[in-house]
Amino acid sequence: MSASETFQSIPIVDVTKLRTGTLDEQKAVAEELGKAARDVGFVYITGGGIDESLFEGVLDATKRFFALPHEEKMKVYIGNSRCHRGYVPEGEEVFASGSKDKKEAYDLSMDLPADDPDYVAGNPLLGPNQWPDLPGFAQAVDDYYRAVFGLGRVLLRGFSLALGEEPTFFDKYVTKPPSQLRLIHYPFDASAEDRPGIGAHTDYECFTLLRSTAAGLEVLNGAGEWIDAPPIPGAYVVNIGDMMEVWTNGTFVATSHRVRKVSEERYSFPLFFAADYDTVVAPLPRFAEEGKALRSPLKAGEHLFAQTAQSFTYLKERVARGELALPQDAAPLSSFGQEARLKY
């Protein structure tokens, strides 16, 4: 059995030297990241250099937002946005299993001006955020977004080195990406049983950086076993997404994961690090030349939008009314990662 089939825990990698070290020291960290990406698809990272006060600030802002009355939160309902930004009420999002999750969220991304040419042209994922009328919220959330996105750029260079490329190899694909930050609230539920909450899925982008306040995250290994990935103080959970799986032709694994139902109140903050909307993601030559074609090329933004449009109720309704159309050859949900491999 391979390591991806038998892993029982998530490795921990200190990325301090990836940020501050010599090239040889960066390569040593990158080697650890690459091994985790190949064998598990998940890794805890420490030494990211993000001031803990930024996380405390976004956590406070998030708690204040979700404590607002429902009608106040609905003033920034995601369905009001033309670029998928805003409040996501409970039941709005449905994964491939068809079950509705007991959670609420607030989604945002790089805050672009209303005259941004991509937004004006109708890009479904690029544009301005919807901000609630809540003192200090936008500043705290945007500050956190910028810090974690910056750490994502550091990790991107680490993955470049892990693949034998120059550290700046992927930078040209990340100039104005629709990298989304989600503020997620799982309310206290005294009747919750230890069962799936968010349905099993892979993340659609390059990789994800996650902080959360309580246990619940589970990761699927190649043997079909669910492995706990509880939060470690100060650490970020990083997992490989669909785009990196395509670039490496399956060498890096977009590991399926889910959130089981827990009774305690839980807040979760995933930042989905994406490539630019028009980036064509295809297996890199060194992987394609191995003669295995596990993954077909895809356009990054179209894949992200297609997966999003298949899981959000308001977008599915727009598609049904003919107001939106899924990109041609859009992959169905759960087409990547260990779950897909076990299924097919």
Rank of each mutant, 00 (worst) to 15 (best):
M1A: 13
S2Q: 08
E5P: 07
E5K: 14
I12K: 08
T16H: 08
K17I: 04
L18M: 05
T20L: 08
T20C: 07
E31M: 07
E32S: 14
L33H: 09
L33N: 07
G34H: 03
A36D: 03
A37C: 14
V40H: 06
I45W: 00
G49N: 07
E52D: 11
F55G: 13
F55Q: 11
E56T: 13
G57P: 02
L59R: 12
D60Y: 06
A61Q: 11
T62A: 08
T62N: 03
R64C: 07
F66R: 13
P69W: 03
H70K: 10
Y77A: 14
N80K: 15
S81E: 02
C83R: 06
R85L: 10
R85T: 14
V94F: 00
F95A: 14
A96R: 05
S97K: 04
S97D: 15
G98K: 09
K100G: 02
K102Y: 04
K103P: 01
E104C: 09
Y106D: 08
Y106E: 04
S109Q: 05
A114W: 00
D116W: 00
P117V: 05
D118S: 13
D118E: 12
A121L: 02
L126S: 04
G127F: 02
Q130F: 00
Q130C: 07
Q130I: 06
D133E: 15
A138H: 06
D143L: 06
D143S: 11
Y145A: 09
V148P: 02
L151E: 07
L151R: 05
R153Y: 00
V154W: 00
R157L: 06
E165I: 03
E166V: 08
T168Q: 08
T168V: 08
T168D: 14
F169I: 07
F169V: 07
K176P: 01
L183E: 01
I184H: 02
Y186T: 10
P187V: 11
D189M: 06
S191R: 06
S191Q: 09
E193D: 12
I198V: 15
G199E: 04
T202S: 15
Y204D: 04
A215S: 14
G216T: 11
G216L: 05
E218P: 03
G222F: 03
D228Q: 13
A229G: 09
P230W: 01
P231D: 02
A235R: 10
A235D: 01
Y236H: 13
V237T: 15
I240P: 00
M243V: 10
E245V: 10
V246Q: 01
N249R: 08
G250S: 07
H257T: 11
V259F: 02
V262M: 09
S263I: 12
R266G: 08
Y267L: 14
P270N: 03
L271G: 06
G291K: 02
G291M: 04
G291S: 04
R295Y: 11
S296G: 06
E302Q: 12
Q307T: 12
Q307S: 13
T308K: 11
Q310V: 10
S311I: 09
L315P: 05
L315F: 06
K316W: 01
V319R: 08
G322H: 03
E323V: 10
L324W: 05
L324V: 07
P327D: 06
D329N: 15
P332K: 11
P332F: 11
S334N: 15
